[in-house]
Design a protein around this nucleic acid. Structure first.
Lengths: 107, 107
DNA sequence: CAAAGACGTTAGCCAAGACTTACGGTAAGT
DNA sequence: ACTTACCGTAAGTCTTGGCTAACGTCTTTG
C-alpha cells in the first residue's frame, strides 16, 4: 500500500496549496515560495514529500528546478477510494431504509 | 474547503484500517478494537475524527454503538481529486513529449 | 575564475496528535 | 436495585512533523 505516502502528503494544508498551484501551472521553487506565507526551504521540503509520494515530478532548467503534477500518486488515491465508493452508497441506502422502518414501529 | 478534515483523517494508518474494516462490515467500537493493536479508547477517538470528517456515521444499538461508512466525506475527496485528474494527465503527456524533443536535440 | 542566483540539506525549536490509563455515564440482565 | 457490558471523555506522556536560520552545492554570467 504505497498510497500511505500520498495521503500523508495531501494531509498538510500547505502541501495541498502547493499541489493546487502546480496543477494550474508548472513552477519553480522560488516562484511558489514568493507568494506564500512560508519560507523557500519549507516549500522545498514540501516538494520533497510530494515527490516521494509520486504526486509531483521535477526537472532541471538551468539553476532552477521546475516542478509539475504527476498523475501516478493521484491515480493511487483514486483507486483506493473507488474501492469503497459502491459499498458506501449501498450502506447509506440501507441506513436510510433502516431509519424509515424505525419510524413505522412507533406511530 | 471542508475536505481538509477528510484528508487529515485518512492520513493516519490506524484510521485507514478502521475505515477499511467498516467498509467490509458495520461494527461496534469493541469489535473493532478487539483485533487491533491499539486500545479501545484509541479506536473511539479515531472514530470521532472520522465522524467529524463525514466519513462514518454512528447509531445506538443498546449499550453498543455501531459505526458505518458515510459516502459524504468520500465524495468530497473524490471531487477534489477529479479537479486535477485531467490537467495531470495532460501535463504528463506534455512532459513525455518534451523529454523526447530533448533527445532529438543531441543526436 | 569569481560572483551571483536558485536549490537542497541540516540542526534545532515548538506545536500537533496518537496512545494509554483512569474515570463517569447509560443500557441490559438478574 | 445491583451488577455487568459497552462506550465516551479527561489528563498526561511521548513521538511526529512543520518551520526557520544557517550552510553547502551547482549552474550561469561577467
Amino acid at each position: 500500500m504505497t498510497n500511505a505516502k500520498a495521503f500523508a502528503a495531501l494531509a498538510d494544508p500547505t502541501r495541498r496549496e502547493v499541489f493546487e498551484r502546480l496543477s494550474r501551472r508548472p513552477s519553480a521553487v522560488g516562484d511558489l515560495a514568493s507568494d506564500m506565507p512560508v519560507s523557500r526551504p519549507a516549500v522545498s521540503q514540501h516538494l520533497k514529500v510530494l515527490k516521494e509520494a509520486g504526486l509531483v515530478t521535477d526537472r532541471a532548467d538551468g539553476t532552477r528546478r521546475v516542478y509539475q503534477i504527476d498523475p501516478r500518486g493521484l491515480g493511487q488515491i483514486r483507486a483506493w477510494l473507488d474501492q469503497f465508493w459502491d459499498v458506501a452508497l449501498e450502506a447509506f441506502k440501507a441506513e436510510v431504509e433502516r431509519q424509515a422502518d424505525e419510524q413505522n414501529d412507533k406511530p
